[in-house]
Every structure is written in structure tokens, then in C-alpha cells.
Design a protein around this nucleic acid. Structure first.
Lengths: 349, 349
DNA sequence: CCGCTTTACTAAAGCGGTTTAGAGGCGATC
DNA sequence: GATCGCCTCTAAACCGCTTTAGTAAAGCGG
């Protein structure tokens, strides 16, 4: 607990203690076949006794590789980890990293900027989340020859991009509600991040999907509210919607978290879900199955997305060329939070 | 997409291009007051034009600090991120890291061992999750003078430890069920990690709390089942319990995830929760409030735990001495998943 | 016993920064 | 006009490791 600054054991210390050169010590760990049996054992024993561990930064500098994959995160960690989406993605990334002996560095904006955070990050490659392909941070990486794979971005000629079929999923979700007879829809839009002032690529694609379905059905224009990706934000969005002139009978949320917030705020306001209000989310987080009622939502393969992105990045780090894959499929999972619109129900009975 | 190995721009390149020494370039970034106005501006402009960014590993080597906080994770990332517990903790850690301009490195066991993963991790300090204080990995860190703070561990003379009152929380949970008239309890135990073959410190403390309450009430010994921290594992545990001779009327789960698994498996088996089976969890994850029925569980301040641990580590990294704080308080949150035992109910009517 | 390859090991040159010690120029001081 | 100190700027050492080039000794066929 004292924090005594124990001076680190260096390779030179081991070399002296074992009566060999630094080179020999290095060989003992990295090229044991270059050493005689006796010397090898002696060096390793001395190293262990002294508690020697090579200095990672020195190693990284001289080997030109750090054994670390970076994840570029466009927002504060406390907000982004409040959304289980990132947990899911990390599972995919983590699996591949472990398989290839990489550690995983989270790089959020520091001191107000992603670029200054990047400068201090010693990584062999970056996964970039939700950044637009022409973001300044990406330029910086390119200039320094750090391979990068984009996730949830727009198509890019420069970088491989891993996406899911946001548009298709959104369209399916909206069509589902329209087929249930809902005409007055509301949309809860994903918030912009610090680097995108307007809207994220993902939000734009989902919006396009919703609108295509609505226009296709000739339904009136939906009401749109922007809400953060949290249950609380979803609840606030619900109240905002209630104050509007046209009370929607169904809401399309661009995230499950917001959808759950809408459901619980609706229930708290005395509405029944889905009888009085249908709700469909987006993501199909594991928890979507345990909510009450279970959430109808658009499934996207998040773990798989992370796994694929990591795999592509590792390929690039190893010098292989890589093409952007097809967007991964999304699909609507109908559970208990949607039902026929009231008018339709009454007309039928 | 080509992966062209763009050779990195080094400080020497900038120095030559600007017609100054390497020192001057370094000064321009780190000690601008050492340079004349004109030179400073010229160097910075040239650096920007060339897209220069100092090599993080070189910087770390020579400055003896990497600007990174490590998190030692005792299991595979894919299993540990399946539990929202880590997300919560990361929110606390992340908040402090961002405040102090640190990036966050996740270090899971690589190549089968935490120690080999530690070797390649260039960090200024480590948060260690759930490791016993005499773990070999911690010795290695000590030998190399890397400050470490333990979370969810046993008290240690060597390191600051951040804990919550697991025992008190567990006791309160068990007492709650006993007061509701349940006598036949079951306990779902946290699984061991790779480094603890028997049981984790956390699991041991919670178990002690449960047993103290049960013994205090003179109730029969509970049935114990070990289950991983996931909904699926919880469901399996439920079925295991059902096959046992004594059907418990209430279960104490050491994690919310397992508790949710028990609830949904029970419902799927035709049991009503809480009428036929009471369930209480541990952690009070945000989702505990959205489940059906809402989960009665022991609240622990996870974000605060992460925040505190990070703060202590940062203090240690800055050479300050640090004492282990008192365990953080836990408290039972009664929601909808517990009710009076059947016998009691019938006897009353 | 000589030249030739192997084997076992080492000196020294990087990797790309920071930092210490000091050099040179210039105005102020006496 | 010599001396001092300050302001800029630089050369070189250093951080701790890997790796290249090379040396000395041992092995070996002839």
C-alpha cells in the first residue's frame, strides 16, 4: 500500500545476474533455439527469480507492434457503456482478440478530442465506432499507417466497413406496424455524437427505412423525436410525444433502450402496451426478451458484427488486403409489445 | 483498403523539414516556452502538414508513463461482458479515466494465463477484478512496481481493496425471505474463475451472509447449486433444483442474471413468480427494474465502486499513499419477485 | 594438422521519443 | 569594452528492448 517506487528489473539486470549478454536474455525468451541448453535454463531461472518482465513499451518500440487492438469510441465511456450494445460488440471483439493474443484498448475522447486520445494510444490497429469515413481522427490514423476498420459508418473507399442492413430492418419494422393498422407513427431517433453534428450514419439509414415503408403505405408523416440511448431518455421522449398534437398509436425506436423507456413510461402513465401503444425497438439486446411485455424489435447480430470487424482488422494488421463485406442481415423479431391498432380492432369486432 | 505500409513520420523528419533539432520539435509540443515565437509556429505548422504524431510507445518508454489504466479480467471477455455488471463498473472506471486523460486497457487471460497477458500490457497501473490477493499475477505486478487496486477481493496488507458489504446484503436478502415465511431456500452460487478453483472472495462472503441469516432463523440448510452469471445458466440451475428432492419455495441468487434465468425458466415451467416461487437476486443491475416481475434484489453501487477504485489507483499512480476504504453499503430493494410463502398464505386465509 | 562449417554467444546499432548539459548570440551593466 | 546573464537552440545520453553482423571456439572430414 506504500507505493514504494520499486525500480523495475531490466534485461541488463538479468544479464549481469546470469553472467551473459543482454542478447542472450532476449534470446532466452524469443529465440530459445539460439542458446545452449544449460545457458537457456540458467537465464530463465535467474529471470524468474528476479521477477523480470520485459518492459512492454520498450518491446513495442523495438518490435513495431504493441499486441493491442484499439477501439475508437465517439462518446464518453459512461454514456456508451450504459447501452448494452457495446457489451455485445465487445464480446465479439474480445473473442477474436483473445484468439490472437491481443489486449483491447478503449479510446474515448480525451481532453475534448479523439485525436489527442489517439496520440497516446499504442495500438496495432483501430476499430472505429460510428465515425463518419471523413472524420479528422481517421485521417490522422491514415497518416501514421495505422490500419482501421469502421463499424456502423458510411461506405468508404479507404477503409473496410462493417455494417448491418439498418435500412432493411427499419423498413420491416415500420411495415409490421402499418400492417397492424397503425397509421399515426412516431419515430425515436438516435442522437448525434460529438463528431456528427447532424445525425449518425446508422440513424440516417434507419430513418430512410422507416420513411420508405411509411411512404410506400401512403401513411401520414411520422412525428420524430431525438432521444439518447437510455431508458430515461426513452421515457422523456414518450412524454414529449404525448404533449404533441397527434398522439401516435405506435412508436418506432431506433434502440431497444429507448423502446424500453417508452414502454415503462407508457405503463406508468396508465397506458397498456401493446393494447394502447405498440412499441418496436432496434438491436434485439438480450434483455429485450425479459422485459414486460417482451419487446418486438429488429434483430441485428451485434456479437457477430464485432467478431467480423475484429477479424478484418487482424487481417489488415497482418498486411492482408481486405474488402468491405456485405452488410449483415437484420430481421424483425415479433414479441409482445406490438398489436393491432385500436380502430382496426374495433372495426373488426 | 490496401494496407500500404506508410512509413511513419518521425520526430527526425519534422526536425529536418523545419530545419531545427529533434529537441526543438519535442519542445514545441511539450515545453513551448523554451522556444522563440517564430520557431514554435514554424515547427508546429510543419508537424501538422506532415501529419506527425509522436510514437506512443517511444513516448511511453522515455517518459516512463503510458497514459493507460489496465483492467485485469480473470475470465474471457465474451463471458464477462455478457454480464452487465462489467458495463456498470466500466462506467465508473471510464469516468475517472477520462477526467485524468487516461485510456483504458482490458487485459483478459491470453494464451491461457493472465501473467503472459500482463507482460504485453503497457499500463501505469492495474485494476484487478476478483483476484485473490495472493494471486501470482499480482506478485508479478509488485515485482515490477506497477501499482494495483483490487476490486471484489479479500482484504490485503499489500494493496488497497475496494469492496461492498456482500455479507450484509446477502444476510438481508435471506432474512427477507425467511420473514416471508420461506423455510426451504435454495442458493445459486457464483462460479469460480480460472484462478480460484474453489470459490471467489465475493461468493464466499455472500454465502456467509445467507448462512448466517438461515442459521439465525433456525431454518433447514439450503440447497446450493453453482451457476454461471448468465440467464441461461440461471435457467439450468432452476431445472437442477426442480429435480432435487426438496423443492425450494424461494431462491437466493448471487447474481441478477442468474435470478432472471430462474424466473423465466420457472414461468416457462408453469410456475408463477412470486406466487409459487420467490426469487431474489444480487447486484441490482438496471435491468432488474424492467423484468417481469420486477426483480427483488440486493443493490450494490457498482458505478461508484468503479469510480472509487479508479480514483484510488490514480492516487497511487501519482505516488500518493492510499488506504483501503470501508466496504460500500448494500441494501435490499424489494420489488415484485418475492411474496409470502404458500403455507403462510394459506394458514392466514 | 589444416581449413571449413556449426554452434554459442556478444557488441553495437537501431526503434522514436525526452531530457540534461551546454553552446552561442545579444543586450544590459559597470 | 569586458563581463554577466538571459534567451534560443542543439548535441548527446538515455529509456529498455530486439536484431544484425560478427567473433571465438568447437566439431569434422580429409
Amino acid at each position: 500500500m506504500t507505493g514504494t517506487p520499486v525500480s523495475r528489473v531490466t534485461i541488463a539486470d538479468v544479464a549481469i545476474a546470469a553472467g551473459v549478454s543482454k542478447t542472450a536474455v532476449s534470446f532466452a525468451f524469443n529465440n530459445p533455439e539460439n542458446l545452449g541448453q544449460a545457458t537457456l535454463e540458467r537465464v530463465l531461472r535467474v529471470a524468474r527469480d528476479l521477477g523480470y518482465a520485459p518492459h512492454p513499451a520498450a518491446r513495442a518500440l523495438s518490435m513495431r507492434r504493441s499486441g493491442t487492438m484499439g477501439v475508437l469510441i465517439p462518446q464518453r465511456l459512461s454514456t456508451v457503456f450504459a447501452n448494452p450494445f457495446l457489451s455485445e460488440l465487445m464480446q465479439g471483439l474480445g473473442e477474436q482478440c483473445e484468439e490472437h493474443d491481443l489486449t483491447l484498448l478503449l479510446v474515448p475522447p480525451l481532453d475534448g478530442s479523439l485525436e489527442s486520445a489517439i496520440r497516446q494510444a499504442s495500438v496495432d490497429g483501430f476499430i472505429s465506432l460510428g465515425l463518419s469515413p471523413d472524420d479528422k481522427a481517421l485521417r490522422l490514423l491514415d497518416r501514421n499507417g495505422i490500419p482501421t476498420v469502421l463499424v456502423d459508418s458510411d461506405p468508404s473507399p479507404e477503409h473496410p466497413v462493417v455494417n448491418v442492413d439498418d435500412r432493411g430492418g427499419a423498413e420491416e419494422a415500420a411495415r409490421h406496424l402499418l400492417e397492424l393498422g397503425h397509421t399515426q407513427l412516431a419515430i425515436i431517433v438516435l442522437p448525434p455524437t460529438r463528431s456528427q453534428l447532424e445525425t449518425t450514419p446508422t440513424a440516417a439509414r434507419r430513418m430512410a427505412g422507416y420513411e420508405a415503408a411509411i411512404a410506400g403505405a401512403g401513411a401520414p408523416a411520422p412525428e420524430c423525436v431525438t432521444a439518447g440511448i437510455s431508458v430515461e431518455a426513452g421515457a422523456r421522449a414518450f412524454h414529449q410525444l404525448r404533449e404533441g398534437v397527434r398522439r401516435p398509436t405506435a412508436v418506432l425506436a431506433m434502440s431497444d433502450m429507448a423502446a424500453i423507456g417508452v414502454m415503462s413510461a407508457a405503463r406508468a402513465s396508465g397506458l397498456r402496451v401493446p393494447a394502447d401503444l405498440s412499441v418496436v425497438g432496434f438491436d434485439d439486446l438480450p434483455m429485450a426478451a425479459w422485459t414486460y411485455p417482451p419487446l418486438t424489435t429488429v434483430h441485428q447480430p451485434i456479437v457477430e458484427k464485432g467478431r467480423l470487424a475484429a477479424r478484418l482488422l487482424i487481417d489488415r494488421m497482418n498486411g492482408r488486403k481486405v474488402e468491405s463485406p456485405q452488410p449483415l442481415a437484420t430481421s424483425l423479431v415479433v414479441r409482445g409489445s406490438t398489436s393491432k391498432a385500436k380502430e382496426v380492432v374495433s372495426r373488426q369486432t
